[in-house]
Design a protein around this nucleic acid. Structure first.
Lengths: 209, 209
DNA sequence: TTCAATTGACTGATCGATCAGTCAAGATAG
DNA sequence: CTATCTTGACTGATCGATCAGTCAATTGAA
């Protein structure tokens, strides 16, 4: 009962995600964070013990939402069909760009994880590697049996491209000049996927085309 | 005379680049930084006035080295030749990956800049946009007159791919499994360029291939 | 040549602010 | 009552920044 009332725990996680996203781990303060969540600073420590643990909780929470969706989308793809890779890449990107991805909130945290800070290595290993392995497999198969080494390479590049887009700041529009009309999300995703697929083919089958 | 003796100013800039790179802006402390440079903390403020100004000095310094090299390499490319785009992309990537790029030192700072923090927007605009414009132009021409909007898109994706590689942490090797032998720098650059060129063509000329 | 005046580089001590984290006590519910 | 939840008050450490002042080198006037 009273299910949809926002609990203190929900508010804390939500505020933490926003705060970490906007200021980064070191830039975010427990005090500002508690104010944002309308709880006392002590309550944060009661539930999460430490700032690091809270940070990990945020990432575990969000990465589970994203990766569950990714796997769900991946599993319904027939990897033997022609445009399988295109579907795989969209299954990788869409959950991170959509509402499940936490919108702007999670964007910078994600970009930080990509950057590969020493602090986050173990966490990335725990939260993202299992799903990543599945996608490396899928990429390998979708490309007709490319080596896992090359598939992992493509996966890494793909995440880089995703990161460059996920925290959109209008720079591409500025550099593009002219009218500078921001791109629709669905169109951007399509561009993104096409770029990655094109690049993947160029690496995996350098002789064709 | 006595030209190659390390001055205090040099040591400070160098230590700052390392410290900011390893800990990020908020994670780095002026005290640790001064210890690293073997100067007093006060000297940092004497020369750079504030932490933010020091950070900006580091980026202005490094970006100038990188972008001067980029332009130099870009200007000797014949944009009408067949594999012009490949050369352009290498001109964009090589200076950032080589010794001028500051090696690991500048890597994470660069990744942070890509992430697009609000704090760095104006600085990126000042230090990177002029060169970026030149490359967007070159990409547009090398692709036979693609619109600047699409060229800017490709430029943005390219930087994302670069960022994913510049702070190498061995994750790709781990995901690739098997022997996990780290890739040679020159080979990686070639892979990188081929991926981007393939992706660029896929976006700019969706009908071909 | 000599000596005061000025400058630039640099330091140790210290400032108030803010940090993450602690703790005992109050509130609330089963 | 008991156990969980929540709070305000507090701590030591550390933050970026400021300060007065030292020291060596340079300048300028006599």
């Amino acid at each position: 009962m009273d299910e949809n009332r926002s609990t203190a725990l929900d508010r804390m996680l939500q505020a933490a995600e926003l705060e970490f996203s906007e200021k980064g781990f070191n830039g975010a303060s427990m005090k500002a964070l508690s104010t944002r969540a309308n709880v006392s600073q002590s309550l944060l420590h009661y539930h999460f013990a430490s700032k690091v643990k809270l940070y990990e909780a945020v990432i575990r929470n969000r990465s589970r939402l994203i990766n569950d969706d990714r796997i769900e989308r991946l599993e319904i793809i027939d990897l033997s069909q022609d445009n399988a890779l295109h579907a795989v890449i969209k299954a990788l990107f869409l959950p991170a760009l959509g509402p499940l991805g936490g919108g702007r909130a999670y964007a910078r945290i994600f970009a930080d994880l990509i950057a590969g800070h020493e602090r986050d290595k173990a966490l990335v290993h725990e939260c993202y590697d299992p799903t990543a392995q599945r996608f490396v497999d899928a990429i390998s198969k979708a490309l007709g049996g490319t080596s896992r080494t090359v598939a992992a390479q493509i996966y890494q590049f793909s995440l880089g491209v995703l990161a460059s887009v996920i925290s959109r700041d209008g720079r591409a529009e500025r550099l593009g000049g002219e009218h500078a009309v921001p791109m629709e999300d669905s169109v951007l995703l399509e561009q993104l996927a096409r770029f990655v697929v094109g690049g993947a083919h160029a690496i995996a089958r350098p002789n064709t085309c």
